[in-house]
Design a protein around this nucleic acid. Structure first.
Lengths: 259, 259
DNA sequence: AACTGTGAAGATCTTCACAGCA
DNA sequence: TGCTGTGAAGATCTTCACAGTT
């Protein structure tokens, strides 16, 4: 876990709660939409509605950033867009590499949301020699052999892993060794990384399973099936996993502390 | 089973904390991997490590499900796989429809993790007539016009939205009207749904933005985090290499800097 | 001896409700 | 008046630490 990094007061840098950080992109998106419609100001109530959260929470969140609103009026849209972008580190361009250009990797490469939000796909990397040179989303795919060079040449610090589960840890290790310190993992595997490296996980089947849980609950209140069902002899057989995968995110709290 | 669990602990299944529900799929995946290796039992410590969580948390989580372990020994892998599967509602097969078969939709359709975990892709739906009939992942794409019929014929209650942002709400409304009560949304938009409908959101750019926030923190440890101070860790020049932001399945959202 | 299950303490997050400013 | 900013209460989640069981 986050072994207490060197306690660094970081110049009274207010520690923004993780839950708040996770919502800033939401606010930013809503604000950007308003900005495009040339809306000059917005109240916490309106913005909260647009972002799908409650207004008290939004105000509290903003209070961690500073006092950027005007009482009786609301928030200046443009100003807030800037402040949040700056807080998130989006006023600079982050070069990102995507490793594993299968269906998902290609989808990510084509995802327009990156370029417009401070990210730039610096390179696409795949282990299949047949992919090398082939352009995806206008970017030629490069071979895994050159991973380290690519990372260094482009000053990449954020990597996206979209490989099969079996290759993820190995790719992760190489990325980290080459200097990557933040990883977005789409492979259904728990990645182990050294201290100081952040990992966030996106897992499609986990999200569906959570939905299934709630769905089941809606469907059957009378499903009082076996509390004492027999062990083993599971029904439907033990769902064979697709790949040898253990799983698990680091999702929750990153290994970084707000000092 | 302290206290012989004579009768149904009525409050058990009811009150599983959301945070716990979100971790059950993690445990399940780790357990499935153990099961495949024919490991008979596992301790909370071992399983927690495999799932990437802390053992006290894991034990607490399991305590909400019941007393499925044996003191001094650990948990029976097969039994636990079954219990968690049941709790998550995965002992049945959930038919799922994916709407929006662009890059992302295709990636999802091809994702092997679904079939093996209690989900079945019942249909692929796209608004492009040219896609109709074309097979993706072995399943022919159907046109949006038939959405309602498809939902009803297949008894679908879970829908996945992978359309551009602009179409998401409309698709969502139709899904809900047709009977879908759980939605997994990949479009970068806030969906509004009536009470009783669950929505979970997966947003690629949000995850990256959260990483960028922490990345910036790491980089600026030394650089005074002043107001106008530019974050360090400055990668390759400002190269705002705006690639051809194709609009994949994911619609894009306004650019950060408006006109 | 080994390991689970859990009350209680602690940490974090959310919501309330209202003081304070434009 | 209208709306922000925030202390404080409340809810939820995490972690500790140890009693209880095999």
């Amino acid at each position: 876990m986050a072994t207490g990094r060197t306690h660094r007061p970081a110049t009274r840098s207010r520690g923004i709660p993780e839950a708040t950080v996770a919502r800033l992109p939401l606010y930013l998106r809503a604000l950007t939409a308003l900005s495009e419609r040339s809306v000059p100001t917005v109240s916490s109530e309106e913005l909260a509605a647009a972002a799908g959260v409650n207004s008290a929470k939004l105000r509290k969140d903003f209070s961690y950033l500073g006092s950027y609103g005007t009482r009786g009026v609301g928030y200046d849209v443009e100003y807030l867009v800037y402040q949040i972008s700056r807080e998130l580190g989006l006023t600079q361009d982050w070069p990102v590499v995507i490793v594993g250009i299968g269906n998902l990797g290609a989808a990510l490469a084509n995802y327009g949301g990156f370029a417009s939000r401070g990210f730039r796909v610096a390179a696409l990397i795949d282990a299949d020699p047949a992919m090398a040179g082939k352009p995806v989303a206008g970017i030629p795919v490069q071979h895994t052999d050159d991973l380290e060079k690519i990372i260094k040449d482009n000053g990449v610090s954020i990597g996206v892993i979209a490989t099969p589960a079996g290759a993820a840890q190995q790719v992760c290790d190489r990325l980290v060794a080459a200097g990557v310190t933040s990883i977005l993992n789409f492979a259904p595997t728990v990645l182990s990384v050294p201290d100081g490296v952040d990992v966030r996980k996106v897992d499609l089947s986990i999200e569906l399973q959570i939905l299934a849980f709630h769905e089941q609950r809606k469907a059957g209140e009378e499903t009082a099936a076996g509390d004492g069902a027999l062990p083993a002899a599971a029904p439907r057989g033990a769902a064979a996993a697709d790949s040898s995968a253990d799983q698990g995110p680091d999702g929750d709290v990153p290994a970084v502390m707000p000092a």
